[in-house]
């Protein structure tokens, strides 16, 4: 007879190596937190590209625009142009980077095929959503802090209203993280994502009153601006710093909150259906 079979893998047997997890809750948290951790690691490993670069970009905007306009423009009475510009720049950077984090992570995983590593494990679509959203928010907030930090060299320190600041910063990063998820799920190639970014995200952020107050626009363009959801984020966030805004910050919060809920619902529906992820 043959010798008894070797057992190269002690504990490999499904019978002996059984490792059951007690509460399903613990399991949910762990799978979710790993995906979140992985997404954080992903952008942190290339921090120069994902955090330093956007901070430098914002700094360049600040130097150029405040140098040119500081002496000529006073948007709100008693508020210097630089003080007006800084909150807008911080918010714009947060928006773009929160979007960029979730969208580029997804498109890269899809293009490289390693998306299967997160599709094979027992992660629910909700865990998937929360992990990508959480990492996108952290990236947005870290970049926002960085931009704010460097602008302190150029603009006088003002104690912002922390409640409004946090509410708008968190909501903005969450919303754009979710928009990034939708874009990343939808896009099949890098150029499709680039189109999404160039024809939707960029115009919406630039035409949202980062560099000017929409009250200086002709009435028609003012009306258009009010239809731009990003406008409310910039306007409300600025209110936290300078105490003045074009619209009521409560209204802005309502609009931003409604947008976030709508986009999250769309993202969850897409994820649940497996749209473009599970063919």
């Amino acid at each position: 007879m043959n010798p008894p079979p070797q057992t190269p893998l002690r504990g490999a047997s499904p019978l002996r190596g059984k490792k059951r997890l007690g509460r399903p809750g613990a399991f949910l948290v762990s799978g979710l937190s790993t995906l979140f951790y992985k997404e954080m690691l992903r952008f942190w490993k290339v921090v120069v590209q994902t955090v330093v670069a956007p901070v430098v970009t914002a700094l360049l905007y600040l130097l150029i625009f405040s140098h040119v306009l500081e002496a000529h423009v006073e948007v709100y009475p008693g508020v210097s142009y630089t003080s007006f510009l800084v909150p807008g720049l911080v918010m714009m950077s947060m928006l773009q980077n929160a979007f960029s984090n979730s969208s580029s992570s997804l498109i890269q995983s899809k293009m490289q095929g390693n998306i299967v590593f997160v599709l094979l494990p027992p992660l629910s679509y909700l865990e998937f959503f929360l992990a990508y959203l959480g990492a996108a928010m952290i990236r947005g907030l870290v970049v926002g802090l960085g931009v704010w930090g460097v602008t302190l060299w150029f603009a006088p320190w003002q104690m912002p209203h922390l409640g409004w600041l946090l509410a708008y910063a968190l909501l903005a990063c969450a919303k754009m993280g979710a928009v990034g998820l939708v874009a990343g799920i939808w896009a099949e190639k890098y150029d499709q994502l680039a189109a999404f970014q160039n024809f939707l995200i960029l115009p919406l952020t630039f035409l949202s009153g980062v560099f000017y107050s929409i009250h200086s626009l002709p009435p028609f363009w003012q009306a258009i601006s009010h239809a731009n959801p990003v406008f409310y984020l910039i306007d409300g966030f600025r209110y936290a710093f300078v105490g003045q805004s074009d619209t009521d910050p409560w209204l802005g919060l309502l609009v931003a909150g409604a947008c976030f809920v709508a986009i999250s619902a769309l993202t969850l529906v897409l994820l649940r259906s497996g749209y473009k992820l599970r063919h």
Binding site: A26, S30, G31, S33, T34, L35, Y37, V118, P121, P122
Partner: peptide, 8 residues
Amino acid sequence: IQSGYFGL
């Protein structure tokens, strides 16, 4: 990371 996805 792969282990973590499975809750390990």
